[in-house]
Nucleic acid binder design. Structure first.
Length: 181
DNA sequence: CGCGTTTGACCTGCGC
DNA sequence: GCGCAGGTCAAACGCG
């Protein structure tokens, strides 16, 4: 599989970037997922399914990365029932990434509405809370800067979207970009 | 006017 | 039971 970039749909993101299994080195899945990637493509494919048309041009575009459930932290409803409240995952999936980025606001293909902000103990930086603003979609995410290295941003997704990425229709990586008119 | 952000208050779980 | 910490709510506000 080849990764290439024809344009950048978000001018706020670094341009000219290609993404692939090799970029997962920078993503550094967090401890609570008990995952470590060695950077090889085989290792990558062991943990992720990649949409056939997935091409990312930023380290924050996870819209086409589909974690393999048997390798990621997945809670079914039954499993949730036995968990403490704080450990439950409503949508059934929890994924955390650590990415190197100047910006905390990252376009991952979904539309988010901010609903909270808190200072957390182990970090001098605030944690921001977002909900997916698509109707009926209960996915949440938390975004905070790494307390030890503020050049990294930690993003945690809770739940699975019950809809496609609203921006996916604008992504046509194989031909000229669709015009918005 | 509608939608998203800001912000302090409120709620809940957990350790002591 | 109390206090702390994390997570969420919702009114006020800003912007297009």
């Amino acid at each position: 599989m080849e990764y290439s970039c024809t344009h950048n749909p978000n001018p706020n993101l670094n341009s000219g970037r290609t993404a692939g299994f090799f970029d997962l080195l920078e993503y550094e899945l967090l401890d609570d997922l008990a995952l470590e990637l060695d950077g090889s493509e085989a290792e990558f494919q062991q943990h992720f399914t990649v949409s056939a048309d997935y091409v990312a041009d930023s380290p924050s575009d996870f819209s086409g990365l589909i974690p393999r459930e048997d390798h990621m932290q997945v809670h079914t409803r039954n499993e949730n029932a036995g968990l403490k409240r704080k450990d439950r995952v409503e949508g059934g999936l929890k994924v955390a990434f650590r990415t190197k980025s100047d910006l905390e606001i990252m376009d991952d293909g979904f539309k988010w509405r901010k609903y909270g902000k808190k200072m957390v103990k182990n970090s001098p930086n605030p944690r921001n809370y977002y909900k997916c603003s698509s109707g009926g979609c209960k996915v949440k995410k938390r975004v905070e800067r790494d307390g030890e290295d503020s050049s990294y941003v930690i993003t945690t997704y809770d739940g699975k979207h019950n809809h496609e990425s609203p921006s996916a229709v604008y992504y046509d990586w194989t031909s000229s970009a669709h015009s918005s008119g």
